[in-house]
Design a protein around this nucleic acid. Structure first.
Length: 616
DNA sequence: CTAGGGTTAG
């Protein structure tokens, strides 16, 4: 990227016609250069220039006051910019040809690099200016690297990271703890960088809570939640006091594991250790309770918060959505503007998904319009995805197809799969088949796509075609993602996979599953053998269904918990139709409340019914 | 002027 390339574009975008009162005041009151500099700095201090027009006005004045070569003013100018256009503008201004090179110092570059490192999508420009800095012969200092490394973390480029690591060593900043911690974080964020992060971490002479958090965060990001919790335990053993950031990360691990008991322990730990409860930590607690199954507790925490951000609202709305409590989600959403806040694009995703899960089609359509017209939010693929899902769930497959054709952006595989499932469920098999073929052309190595096609052929009774898919999958070396179910019991997390025999209690568990099967049949349950992808006879299919990890986990829970205790399990896939129907019977026969977290949402089974009202 | 964190369709 060239500085000169950004400049003309930005200048075109700038409107310099109006002057604000403050600026007029500035120019009128100017009595001398010193006063002008002071006032100019004060103005910049107040973040006055966080929009392009204002920045341009300030620029005009800086020039008018003859301050365009004043390093202090220029640096502050760069630092004030919080939006991307403004940063581009400031940097192109600072590096304009009429500003002499002599005023470029480390501080100035650091400021520009920091501004870009903090942006969402322009971190590469931080690296660009880092290179400009070196080209100009301006030396980096120990403050430069945390900014540059943070930018690299955002880009996730391991080779770049390694070369920056080399520079850090070359300049001798590798003994600075801030730099070290940022390097651990940077490696954690790069593809395949976790080993390098761990090596750095292991070799660091002194680890503080930031170092531990960086490493724990790296594990959480990769989904290595058990290791993350392990690292947290180790941190306590070596006597480093966790702070609120550490707790946020441990809560993320709980969310991933669906570990409510562990999450509750973390909450009590926070109280006991008097960890400061920042808004972020509160939000993380809300998320943990909602996504680990206790959405009422999440609501309670939300109500008790003194200060909320839009993310707090999003967390609780998304939580309600997952539990199928759409009406509550909608009414909470309606409170947002009253609380003096503006809904953002993300909270709308939560809201639309809540409408979708609760069948609130008309409401969903209205909110979608409201989002565009009143809040001027341009819908993203996720918003369209929610709308498609909403129409599909309500059975309006034709309308969903029309909606996708009218969308201004191309549907992605997620939307196509939503449509295909709906076609499958509503008997639009021909359409489903053709979309699936299209999808497989785009994503030939994605296993679940073949499963969809296979299910469609099963429903069409095209057995030869179904067998052929199996062969294609085998030839490509693809396997179905093994279903697994986790369950927490006495501070342990147990994981079951289909047909698992590694468990110490497996004989009893399988006997229990058989007994459950007999009881269920007496109560009128019929196995849904059409869900089995394998080409085997009916009795074996039934057997395959009985080995589903979900049934193993429930049998394990029935064996090891007192009668009447609720059972909570977490699946890595969506619950299959057979398990769903079986679990309803189990909740009735064994008088247990069973809470299942699926890939997408929660199912609360009680007395033979499920909270999703068989709609998922 | 320096490090680690909370929300996102199925």
């Amino acid at each position: 990227m060239q500085v000169s390339a950004i400049r003309p574009k930005l200048l075109r975008a700038i409107n310099t016609t109006t002057l604000t009162t403050s600026l007029r005041h500035l120019s009128d009151a100017t009595t001398g250069k010193r006063g002008a500099e002071q006032r100019c700095l004060a103005l910049l201090q107040d973040q006055f220039c966080n929009s392009l027009p204002k920045l341009a006005q300030t620029h005009t004045h800086i020039v008018k006051l003859g301050l365009q070569n004043n390093p202090l003013v220029l640096t502050k100018f760069a630092a004030t910019s919080s939006d991307l256009g403004a940063i581009d503008y400031a940097s192109s201004f600072i590096f304009s040809p009429d500003a002499g090179t002599r005023l470029y110092d480390t501080f100035l570059f650091n400021t520009v690099i920091r501004a870009y490192a903090q942006t969402r999508h322009s971190k590469d420009r931080a690296l660009y200016f880092y290179n400009v800095m070196l080209d100009y012969g301006v030396l980096p200092n120990k403050f430069t690297y945390p900014f540059v490394l943070k930018a690299c973390a955002g880009l996730g480029d391991l080779n770049l990271g390694k070369s920056l690591h080399g520079s850090v060593v070359k300049w001798g900043f590798d003994d600075d703890v801030h730099v070290q911690n940022t390097m651990v974080h940077m490696y954690c964020c790069c593809d395949g960088g976790i080993e390098f992060a761990r090596n750095m971490f292991d070799e660091m002479p002194k680890l503080d809570s930031v170092s531990w958090s960086a490493m724990i965060g790296g594990y959480v990001r990769l989904g290595w939640s058990t290791d993350a919790v392990g690292l947290f335990r180790q941190m306590q053993m070596v006597g480093v006091r966790p702070d609120e950031v550490t707790m946020v990360l441990v809560l993320s691990a709980c969310i991933d594991l669906g570990a409510l008991e562990l999450g509750k322990w973390v909450e009590s730990f926070i109280e006991k250790e008097r960890v400061q409860k920042s808004v972020e930590l509160y939000n993380a607690l809300i998320g943990m309770f909602a996504k680990c199954g206790d959405v009422d507790k999440a609501l309670k925490l939300f109500r008790n918060m003194r200060e909320r951000t839009i993310i707090s609202w999003t967390s609780v709305i998304v939580g309600l959505a997952m539990h199928g409590r759409g009406f509550e989600a909608v009414s909470l959403f309606d409170e947002i503007t009253g609380a003096g806040m503006a809904p953002d694009d993300v909270v709308f995703i939560g809201l639309l998904s809540a409408c979708s899960h609760s069948g609130l089609v008309e409401k969903g359509k209205n909110y979608f319009d409201l989002m565009i017209k009143k809040f001027k939010i341009v819908p993203r693929i996720e918003h369209y995805g929610c709308m498609v899902d909403m129409l599909c769930r309500a059975g309006h497959v034709k309308e969903a197809l029309e909606f996708v054709q009218k969308m201004p952006i191309e549907p992605n595989p997620i939307i196509l799969r939503t449509l295909i499932s709906a076609c499958h469920a509503r008997g639009e098999l021909k359409i489903g088949e053709s979309i699936t073929k299209l999808l497989i052309r785009n994503e030939p190595m994605h296993g679940p796509n073949y499963v969809l096609l296979s299910n469609i052929y099963a429903k069409m009774s095209h057995w030869e075609k179904k067998t052929k898919i199996r062969e294609v999958m085998d030839k490509k070396g693809m396997k179905k993602i093994p279903g697994s179910t986790m369950i927490e019991l006495d501070n342990e997390i147990y994981e079951f996979v289909a047909g698992d025999k590694s468990h110490w209690q497996y004989k009893e568990i399988y006997e229990m599953v058989d007994e459950m099967g007999r009881e269920l049949k007496k109560a009128g349950y019929a196995p849904t053998t059409s869900e089995v992808l394998l080409d085997i006879d009916e009795e074996d299919k039934e057997d395959a269904l009985n080995r589903h990890s979900e049934k193993l986990a429930i049998a394990f829970a029935l064996l090891n918990t007192p009668p009447g205790t609720p059972i909570r399990i977490v699946k890595n896939l969506r619950v299959c139709g057979d398990c769903h129907s079986a679990t309803k019977f189990i909740s009735k026969i064994y008088k247990r409340e069973i809470v299942v977290r699926d890939r997408n949402r929660f199912h609360h089974f009680k007395e033979g019914f499920c909270s999703c009202r068989d709609f998922w």
